[in-house]
Deep mutational scan, measured.
Amino acid sequence: LETFPLDVLVNTAAEDLPRGVDPSRKENYLSDEDFKAVFGMTRSAFANLPLWKQQNLKKEKGLF
């Protein structure tokens, strides 16, 4: 999966995202380093959170 810089994904409308980016899964296009910096946890820890908590975190970080 291709990764993009944080500033390309945060608070970006679906139509302005790079081609192929799923707007409902912007976090998947962050590098592992950016993911950890944004969410303060690994991808696996994030995946283990309840869906509502994942969505709330994504909203807080501008990735929803």
Rank of each mutant, 00 (worst) to 15 (best):
N48K: 13
G20P: 08
L17M: 06
A45S: 11
A47R: 13
T12A: 10
L49K: 04
W52Q: 10
F4T: 03
N48E: 11
D7S: 15
L30K: 01
R19C: 15
V10H: 05
L1P: 12
F4H: 06
V38A: 09
N48P: 01
S44W: 11
A37D: 12
L6D: 01
L6Q: 03
L30E: 00
L63P: 02
G62I: 01
D34P: 00
E2D: 10
V8P: 01
E15Y: 04
T3W: 12
K59F: 10
N48R: 11
D16R: 04
L63Q: 02
K58W: 02
L6V: 09
G20W: 15
F46N: 00
K61Y: 12
S44Q: 14
W52H: 11
F35S: 00
D22R: 03
G40L: 12
A47F: 09
M41N: 00
E2W: 12
V21R: 02
P5K: 05
Y29W: 10
A37L: 14
V38K: 01
Q54F: 00
K59D: 07
K61A: 15
M41S: 02
A45H: 12
L30I: 08
E60N: 09
R25L: 08
N28K: 08
F35W: 03
V10W: 06
K58T: 02
K36L: 13
R19F: 15
T42H: 10
F4V: 06
P18N: 03
P5L: 04
L51P: 13
T12E: 06
Q54G: 00
F46A: 00
E60H: 09
A14F: 09
D7T: 09
S24K: 09
T3H: 11
L9A: 02
D7L: 09
E60P: 02
L1T: 14
K26M: 13
F64D: 15
N56G: 10
K58N: 01
L17N: 04
A37N: 12
K58R: 07
L6W: 07
Y29S: 07
L9H: 02
A14V: 12
L63R: 02
E27N: 01
F64A: 15
S24N: 14
A13W: 06
E60F: 06
G40N: 15
A47Q: 12
A14Q: 11
R19G: 15
L51N: 10
K26D: 03
A14W: 12
T42A: 11
Q55V: 13
F39H: 00
L1S: 12
F4A: 02
S31C: 07
L9G: 02
D32C: 07
K61I: 08
N48I: 12
P23I: 07
S31E: 04
V10A: 09
T42E: 14
L49R: 01
Y29I: 02
L17A: 04
V8K: 09
K61C: 10
P50R: 03
A37H: 11
Q55D: 14
E60R: 09
G62P: 01
L30F: 02
N11F: 07
F35D: 00
E33T: 13
F39Q: 00
A47V: 14
P18R: 00
E15P: 09
P50C: 06
T12P: 05
P23D: 07
P5M: 04
L6P: 06
G40P: 00
S31N: 09
K59S: 10
T42N: 12
A45G: 09
E27I: 02
D7A: 14
A14T: 13
L1A: 12
V8W: 11
G20R: 05
L6S: 03
L17H: 04
N56P: 00
F35H: 00
R19D: 15
K26I: 15
Q55N: 15
R19A: 15
D34S: 05
L49V: 05
F35T: 00
A37R: 10
D16N: 08
F64R: 04
P18Q: 01
L6A: 05
K58S: 03
A47N: 11
N48L: 13
F4N: 02
A14G: 09
F64M: 13
W52N: 11
S44H: 11
L1M: 13
E60I: 10
Q55Y: 08
A45N: 11
D7Y: 11
G40K: 11
A47P: 00
L51C: 10
V38W: 04
S31Q: 04
A13M: 08
L6R: 04
V8D: 05
V38H: 06
K36F: 14
D22P: 01
G20H: 08
V10G: 03
L51G: 10
L30C: 02
A14I: 14
D7R: 08
E15G: 08
D34N: 05
T12G: 08
E33C: 09
T3C: 08
L17Q: 03
K58G: 01
Q55W: 08
A45T: 12
L9V: 02
F4L: 08
L1C: 11
G20C: 11
W52K: 10
D32I: 09
E33N: 11
K61W: 07
E60W: 07
A14R: 09
K53N: 09
V21W: 05
P23L: 05
A37M: 13
V8H: 07
D16M: 05
P50F: 02
Y29K: 03
Q55G: 07
L17V: 07
L30M: 06
K58C: 04
D16I: 01
A45F: 10
E2P: 15
A14M: 09
S31D: 07
T3E: 06
E33R: 10
K26W: 04
V8L: 14
E2V: 15
P23M: 05
S24E: 15
D34W: 03
A13S: 12
T12S: 11
V10T: 08
Y29Q: 03
N11H: 11
D32R: 05
E2F: 14
D16A: 07
R25V: 08
V38F: 05
S31Y: 02
L30R: 01
L57W: 06
V10P: 01
R19V: 15
F64V: 09
S24G: 10
R19S: 15
L1G: 12
K53P: 01
E27D: 03
A45Y: 09
A37F: 14
K58M: 03
L63M: 07
N11I: 05
W52T: 10
P23R: 02
F39V: 02
A45K: 12
D32L: 13
N48D: 13
K36C: 14
W52L: 14
P23V: 07
K58H: 01
A37W: 12
G20E: 13
S24T: 15
K26L: 15
D32F: 07
N56W: 10
G62W: 04
K59T: 12
L49I: 06
F64K: 06
P50E: 08
R25H: 14
K36H: 15
V10F: 06
L9F: 12
S44V: 15
N11E: 06
Q55P: 00
G20Y: 07
K36W: 15
L51W: 11
K36Y: 14
R19L: 15
